[in-house]
Design a binder for these strands. Structure first.
Length: 570
RNA sequence: GCCCUCGUAGCUCAGGGGAUAGAGCAUUGGCCUCCGAAGCCAUGUGCGCAGGUUCGAAUCCUGCCGGGGGCACCA
């Protein structure tokens, strides 16, 4: 089913085409009507005619019978108002559509690189955004029918592992395992770091251990595997706590590409792209310069013959395109990596590993700030543990539920508190334009009013409550007269769902979906403020119940796309 | 020094070249014998500055100012 927007755009495009082939109708949602088309103004200029005249001609010519009425307004806008019969028909179709008008796209393979915590390091707020944004995009891509391959590119390789393995040995395997198993990754890492900083002998052993690790020494690899496995198990606990869809199968860490790194260097060399510079093997993609204005290298092999992370990233691109058959590569990675990823993409394109037909997008995001507007840290200056943050959110949500005297058993209340806390934290992260920094403020995000996750959950739960009270009703027989403006406004909002998803995915911008859902919730509360549902009778009652049902399902599906649960009651 | 990014109401933020720039919070004032008031309605001297492109600029371009980030072997 084409969306309402698409239907209008299609009809208008044909009329514009007849006047000037290829002219854009510039269709937009409107404050003054349901939609407005602004294309006549631009067209008038190129045709050398008055805009109102052009608009009038299009209004006259366009075939919108049974869809919308059109009128010329202002200097040459076309205001479109959907016909009641059309609205009624669309809503009736949505009633029997689980996807609420969302079309299944021809399936594309979308590889989404997100979360990517470091082995033997605590997950902190810095990992939060990548995880939450990436998971939302993954859910939305699945929702529109794409094949999603999630890649959790964990940091499981590199020089720190010499130090970490030596520390594991110093502690004794059993004790190290015990420490890591209870999730004290920070303690373990800091212990290793302290030994490394204080003890020259330890440093020597660490360096030797890195060599052994890279050389494939069996015992060293076994010890390394312990660190990786325990960390991944811990990450899984956090993902469960966050209700994130990442699984162990999605963990494809840096080390996974080790065997492909030689090939990356060899093939770049064979393509004539590789240059030696200061002893390092580099590619110099066009358009990148350093602070002296000289060409900037992407270092694939370091002077010490170790591989740089550029080599790993290039190997990953090849794997994702060639083996996984990716049509899109999304990297949900912080903004500081912008230049690096741009260089990786440029080199991959040059090398022919990344065809123009494959979309490569850096889904960059800003920092999480503390109340002082600086990077969020604990009082002692350390990064904040994600788990501590979540636990506090859960406690506060639970306290709020207790205060509201929710009639629930303790276990059910605790589970609800967790759902509300997740909604609060995720929504706060997703609802601002992702490139911006945002201030982490539990009080604001947990407020059950205004622009928050819990408020949207509440809007849904309230609808469910009404529908429960209504009992068994055959909604499919509902008809939509939409006599009250509040009901009509809600209907228009419901029809915007497919477009909200489309614009969200086009920009990898979950905040657009957040804005849509908040707008819908506001239409909703205005609606049942003006239109009593259960006290109405006959067809009007049925119509209103059907609108409630559609709104509830849209909220549930939309929140689901954000990775937020929609409890039945709260 | 170069590059990227952000700068919108008291605060937190939307704004896909179009009409009178919008929400939420906060403020003030109205609404509950009525489906969940976690709500509704009302309430405002705001686009960092200066140019430019355009019929039309918060949006595109240039230059400044301010915050953040990046600019060769840590990943």
């Amino acid at each position: 089913m084409a969306s309402t927007f698409e239907i209008l755009a299609g009809r208008l495009a044909r009329a514009f085409d007849r006047l000037a082939p290829g002219a854009d109708p510039v269709l937009r949602p409107s404050e003054r009507a349901d939609y407005q088309a602004n294309g006549a103004l631009a067209l008038a200029k190129t045709l050398g005619r008055s805009a109102r005249e052009v608009a009038a001609e299009i209004a006259d010519d366009v075939d919108l019978d049974g869809v919308a009425s059109v009128e010329v307004a202002g200097p040459g806008f076309l205001n479109l108002t959907l016909e009641p019969a059309f609205l009624a028909e669309r809503l009736a179709a949505l009633l029997v559509d689980d996807r609420l008008g969302l079309e299944l796209a021809p399936a594309r393979t979308v590889v989404i690189d997100y979360s990517a915590p470091n082995v033997a390091k605590e997950m902190h707020v810095g990992n939060l955004r990548s995880t939450v944004i990436g998971d939302s995009l993954a859910r939305l891509e699945r929702l529109v029918g794409n094949r999603v391959v999630a890649r959790n590119h964990v940091g499981d390789w590199g020089t720190p592992f010499g130090m970490l393995i030596e520390h594991l040995l110093d502690l004794g395997e059993d004790r190290a395992i015990a420490e890591l198993s209870i999730g004290d990754l920070n303690g373990f890492y800091q212990g290793a770091r302290a030994a490394f900083d204080a003890d020259e002998g330890f440093r020597e052993r660490s360096r030797a251990r890195v060599v052994a690790l890279q050389g494939g020494d069996d015992e060293t690899r076994r010890l390394w595997r312990i660190l990786v496995d325990l960390s991944v198990a811990y990450f899984s606990e956090i993902y469960a706590k966050l209700d994130v869809t990442l699984t162990r199968e999605d963990v494809v860490g840096e080390s996974s590409y080790n065997d492909a790194l030689d090939g990356v260097v060899r093939d770049l060399d064979a393509l004539g792209l590789l240059m030696e510079s200061d002893g390092a093997q580099c590619v110099f993609p066009a358009g990148f310069t350093n602070r002296d204005g000289e060409p900037l290298p992407l270092i694939v092999r370091k002077r010490d013959e170790g591989f740089g992370y550029a080599a790993t990233d290039l190997a990953a691109v090849r794997d994702r395109v060639e083996r996984l058959g990716a049509d899109e590569l999304l990297y949900v990675v912080g903004a500081p990596q912008t230049q690096h990823l741009a260089m990786v993409a440029a080199v991959a394109r040059r090398a022919g590993w990344l065809p123009d037909s494959v979309r490569f997008e850096h889904v960059a995001f800003g920092n999480v700030l503390g109340p002082d507007r600086k990077m969020l840290k604990t009082r002692s200056g350390e990064s904040v543990k994600l788990v501590a943050l979540l636990d506090e959110a859960i406690e506060r949500a639970d306290a709020a539920l207790v205060e509201r005297a929710i009639d629930l058993e303790v276990d059910a209340r605790r589970e609800l508190a967790a759902q509300v806390a997740r909604a609060a934290v995720k929504y706060a992260d997703l609802s601002t334009e992702r490139q911006r920094d945002y201030v982490f403020d539990l009080d604001r995000m947990l407020a059950f009013e205004g622009d928050t996750g819990p408020y949207l959950q509440y809007a849904h739960a309230r609808l469910r409550s009404i529908l429960r009270r209504a009992g068994a009703v055959d909604l499919a027989t509902a008809t939509f007269a939409l006599e009250e403006s509040a009901a009509r406004d809600l209907a228009i909002g419901l029809l915007g769902w497919p477009d909200a998803v489309a614009t969200t995915l086009a920009g990898a911008a979950p905040h657009r979906l957040c804005a849509y859902l908040l707008d819908l919730a506001q239409r909703l509360t205005a609606f049942y403020d003006a239109c009593p549902v259960l006290r109405a009778e006959g067809p009007v009652r049925l119509e209103r119940l059907a609108l409630c049902d559609l709104a509830a399902r849209t909220l549930r599906l939309g929140l689901g796309g954000l990775g937020i649960e929609a409890p039945e009651r709260m």
